[in-house]
Structure formats: C-alpha cells, structure tokens
Amino acid sequence: MGEKDLFDDANFLRELVLDHYKYPHNHGLVAGDGYISKHMASDSCIDDITVQLDVQDEVIRDVRFDGVACAISTASTSMMGDLLIGKTIAEAKKIIDEYFKMIENKEYDADMLEEAVAFKNVYKQANRIKCATIGWNAMNELLEKKEDEK
C-alpha cells in the first residue's frame, strides 16, 4: 500500500491514534527561556492540558504538551507537534486552518495534514470535537501571541 492508501485505511489510522496516545510525542513540559505556554481546561470537557511553544526567527523550534487528557486530545496534540515543528509561523497557521476545515467537515488539503487525517471523522461526533481541537486551539492562541509581539 502507498502512503495515500494507508491514510484511508481505518485500521492503520486507529493504530496510529492509539500509538500517539500510548506514546505521545513532544510530551512533557520544559522550563526553557524561549517557551511560552497556554493552559487549556474547560468545564464541559475533562481535558486539562498545557501546550508550550518555542519560536525562533519565525520558525517553530519546539512544541511540548502535558496534562490529563483523553485519547483523542492526546493523540491529536501529539500529531500537531510533529506537524508544526520546523515550520514557519505562516506555514503553521495554514496547517492549522486546514485541520479545522477537516474537523468542520469542509474541503481540506489532506496532504498538508499527513497523519492528522486520522481525525477526519471526528465531525460525526459533535461532543468530541473539543477533544480533537483542544491542543490546536491552544496552539492558535500561542501563535497569535507571537504575532502580537512583533
């Protein structure tokens, strides 16, 4: 199977999500000078996570996260870090836009989202959208903060 087909394969995508949940990437907060953080917790959702971002010269150098969260929010935030590290702020914002289009069941560019297409069906369960977006919303706020600093 080519990569494209794999991303259409339900079993493969589920394994991917489980893997990111059990062994999240970019997990654990760091106490570094360059990092800014955003804590996200809402009453309607049990998830309680903190996302950190380090940007240097317009490029995302690192993303970290930690907290108490369900499989969907953990895996989606884990994948987000993989996608965004090394990107410029402008590229990152484009990817985040595409991700939200997918979550809202609109036309989106699957190539840009790579593994994160695993969440393409989340729109069918309205009560879980917040899980799939909590980390991404935190990142949006952090990027805006970076933009405002300029």
């Binding site: 589920r14 999500v17 489980l18 949940y21 499989a71 969907i72 989340v122 369960q125």
Partner: peptide, 10 residues
C-alpha cells in the same frame, strides 16, 4: 477497551 473506544472514529 482502548481499541473499541478509539475505534468509534474509524
């Protein structure tokens, strides 16, 4: 289990 709980999205 974890499989069935995450499986609802696929």
């Amino acid at each position: 289990d974890l499989n069935s709980a995450v499986g609802i999205f696929f």
